[in-house]
Structures are given as C-alpha cells and as structure tokens.
Simulated assay, not measured.
Amino acid sequence: MFQQPSWHALQVMIKLVMIPIPQYPLYSPTIAEFDLHQVGYYLDESTNWGLEISELERAYEEGKKLCNPKALVVINPGNPTGSVLSRENIENVIRFAHEKKLFLFADEVYQDNVYAEGSKFHSFKKVTMEMGAPYNQMELASFMSCSKGYMGECGLRGGYAEIVNLDPQVKALYLKSISAKLCPTTLGQAVMECVVNPPQEGEPSYEQFIEEKNKVLSSDNFLTFTFRSLINLRHLASFYMICFSFACYCTVSFYVSFFNMGNHGKGKPTNCAE
C-alpha cells in the first residue's frame, strides 16, 4: 500500500527502459511488473560483446515509436557476456545518455571479476565526475552487491544503489517506497559494511585482507572454486528433486485421502456437482 504512489511516480518518470541483449534476466520481468516498456540494444559478439553507440541510436529510435525513452541500463562488467567496457566506450555512452536525457543505471556488481589481460574496470560515476560539467550533473544510479566478487558466498544477500543528482521529490518517493520493503538479513548487512569499508593501508588487518582477497580472485583458485561449486550444486539439485518428488507424492496422497473421506469412501467429494 505504501509502494503504490511511489511506483506510480516512477511510471510517470520512466516510460521506456533500454536494456542490453543478452542481459541478466532480472530487468525484463521487473519492467513488465510495473507496466513499463522495454527496448533491447544488442551487444556485438564479434567485438567481444562490445556496446556500439550506433546500436544505441537504433534502439532509441525504435523505442520512440512506442513512447519516450527515459532510462538506459548498462551492465559492466557484462552479465552474462563477461565483457568489460573501456573508458572511451563509457565516455561515449555517457555522452549519448546526456544527449538523449536518459537516466543511467550502471549495474557494476561484477567489478571485482575482471580477468582478461588489458581489461580494467571503470565506474560510471567516477568517469562522469572526471568528465566535468555537464556530465557530472546527470542522473545516475550505480549498483553493487556482496553476493559477487571476492566477498561472494552463496546465501549472503545484500547490496546498495548509489544515486546521484536525483530530483529531490522523486528521491523522497523512492526512499518512501524502499522503506516499506523488507531489508536484507543481519548477516547481509554486516557483509555490506565490510564491502564499503574494507581495511585500509596501515591498519592491523590490511595485509591479511589483501592476501586473502588476491587469493580468492586469482584465476586458478576462482576456477577451482567455481568447478567445485557446480559439482556441489549438481548433488544439491538431485537432493531437491528427491524432496520435491516426495512433497508432490504427499500432497497428492493427502488430497486423495481428503476427497475420499469427504465422500465417505464413495470415491467422489460430497460437494461435487453431478
């Protein structure tokens, strides 16, 4: 009940959202849930899933046939592509978003998972600020999570959105909306505190923190961890299938017994129409 006016305000603000294809499947159902429109811009596989400005232009013009595009989602590093945008590419995207007056959504939850030689992560917020006016005055939301990267552990769920230059009235409605929702678990909140405030150089735990972080992020250890996780996941999936089958059997047995009892053993519920 508290979320309705907030999301109505967002619907007025955002008519159409531009999202990458392929993309993390959260965006499509979320856009559909709030009765918004989406238009996909296609990443170029031949250039390692690069983001071409010409493709953004095409998608923008296509979207204008439906309604007024208001937001642009960029996933960097890419999910599921794994691509990492260069600084030059990011600057061009920012210029495009500024020209079209688009709200930029920067999904950057995989920023610690950059392994390709020559690749480097650049945050959209940092680049916009370094580009100066008028780009440092753009509306921008950056997303980060404790479920990925070196701190990622299954079951630890927490994240944040850093929002800059948002209209005060819209921000007030947004805060009201998220205040009415459930928050992450206590463990998730504690991990997020560690993510945003890691040990600093000169502090007693800094050397150990850096050693453990680099060990987790080293490609050999990370691939081994991923492989073992997949094996465990396979066994876990088998266990869940057994539990699911047993639950279905119990449920069906219960309803059969219930209907038989309701009809006193005649094989049909007593309230069933002839």
Rank of each mutant, 00 (worst) to 15 (best):
Y27E: 14
H98M: 00
N214K: 05
D220C: 03
Q23E: 15
Y110F: 13
T30A: 11
A133N: 09
I53R: 06
A32L: 06
F225T: 08
I178M: 11
P22A: 07
E212S: 05
Q11Y: 00
P5T: 03
V216Y: 00
D167H: 02
Y42L: 01
A116M: 11
N165K: 08
F143T: 10
E62R: 12
Y41A: 06
F96M: 03
F225K: 05
G40P: 06
N197T: 10
F121V: 12
T128Y: 01
Q4R: 05
E91S: 00
F124E: 10
P77M: 09
H122P: 08
W49C: 02
S257Y: 13
C194N: 14
P77K: 11
S46P: 00
S83V: 00
M192I: 02
V191I: 05
E139A: 11
Q11G: 07
Q200T: 10
T224A: 10
L104D: 12
T226Q: 09
F244C: 07
N136W: 03
Q200D: 14
A190F: 05
I19P: 03
C67E: 15
N89F: 00
S218I: 04
A141G: 06
M241R: 01
S253I: 03
V17C: 07
F105G: 04
T81S: 02
M13A: 11
D167A: 07
C67L: 08
F121A: 04
L140N: 13
K148L: 08
G40D: 07
V256T: 08
K215P: 07
K101P: 03
K266C: 06
S119G: 02
S205F: 13
F239E: 15
A237I: 14
I242D: 11
I19G: 02
T30D: 06
K181Y: 01
N113D: 15
T226F: 06
M131N: 03
M1Y: 00
L173F: 01
S147D: 12
R234V: 13
K215E: 15
S6T: 02
F96A: 02
L102V: 13
K126D: 13
E162I: 07
G202F: 04
S123D: 11
N76S: 10
C272E: 10
F34N: 09
L10E: 12
L233N: 13
C67R: 13
S218D: 14
N221M: 00
G265P: 09
Y110S: 12
Y115P: 03
T185N: 14
K64V: 00
E201F: 09
R58V: 07
